[in-house]
């Protein structure tokens, strides 16, 4: 098991226009994309959205292959969605094999759903590909801030994300260590049926949880010792700056969304 090579958020550092955009602009853009993909109905609309996404990938100087590879984990869901739509939609039959029938309407709907999903996955992955987890966290905190009065714990959510990001590698390393320690004493994580394997995880999970709670306790004390008392009166080391390119980007995004959403 090679946990060490795991990258979180698959961020690709860079210095392109897209990378330099304020994370809030990018979050807003992603939200618009999601709305747009559900508003559009027709291949011309999807084509335009695909062009726009391709344009952003080009601007961000992202490696195409890396972006497309992001589809791989979701291939099963993708195939299932397309397949179910193709085979189970009723209408004008154009092909029949035993119990499988393909209809014209099915093909059209399957194609639409497939395109929609692909664009959704690729489009939203652009956010995490061009934005570091820290910036993303700052952006989310800043966007949620106005809703604090409604009881949305903006700072706390951001703090939770930061700590989670900080401790994922630490806990993965620890998992690896415990696994090795248990394997050295004859534990077997690989063989046996589902039940057997689930059971074999107990000696892994118990020490992992115990240690996670101990870490949480110590971290809380350390944070308090460093003067942490929640979000109030706190400043941010890194300020978000909403610049001119952000204004331009948002104007373009909104115009695009409205035009494509309304006409296609």
């Amino acid at each position: 098991m090679r946990f060490r090579n795991l990258t979180i958020g698959q961020h690709i550092p860079g210095n392109s226009v897209v990378h330099r955009l304020d994370p809030r602009t990018k979050i807003l853009g992603t939200t618009l994309l999601i709305v747009l993909l559900f508003a559009v109905n027709g291949f011309i609309g999807y084509g335009l959205v695909a062009l726009a996404i391709a344009g952003v990938i080009h601007l961000a100087k992202l490696p195409w292959r890396y972006v497309i590879r992001g589809l791989r984990p979701l291939l099963v869901i993708l195939l299932l969605t397309v397949g179910l739509n193709v085979f189970l939609t009723e209408g004008e039959v154009i092909f029949r094999l035993w119990f499988l029938t393909i209809t014209r309407e099915g093909l059209a709907r399957g194609g639409m759903m497939g395109t929609r999903l692909v664009l959704l996955i690729v489009g939203t992955s652009l956010l995490t590909l061009t934005t570091s987890p820290i910036q993303l966290t700052d952006g989310i905190e800043s966007l949620l801030n106005p809703f604090r009065r409604l009881g949305v714990p903006a700072h706390e959510l951001a703090m939770m994300m930061t700590i989670a990001l900080r401790f994922i590698p630490t806990l993965l390393e620890e998992t690896e260590k415990i696994m090795k320690a248990q394997m050295a004493r004859g534990a077997d994580f690989q063989s046996g049926g589902l039940m057997q394997r689930a059971k074999s995880l107990i000696p892994l999970l118990v020490p992992l949880f115990v240690s996670a709670f101990r870490r949480a306790d110590e971290l809380a004390i350390a944070m308090e010792a460093r003067g942490y008392r929640g979000g109030q009166g706190r400043t941010k080391f890194r300020e978000l700056r909403f610049g001119r390119i952000d204004a331009v980007a948002i104007a373009l995004l909104v115009t695009f969304t409205v035009v494509v959403g309304v006409f296609f």
Binding site: P133, R215, L219, A222
Partner: peptide
């Protein structure tokens, strides 16, 4: 204050 376990007192990424 600096504590014993270096892993459990660093907060940020």
């Amino acid at each position: 204050m600096v504590f014993q376990n270096p892993d459990n007192q660093l907060v940020a990424t």
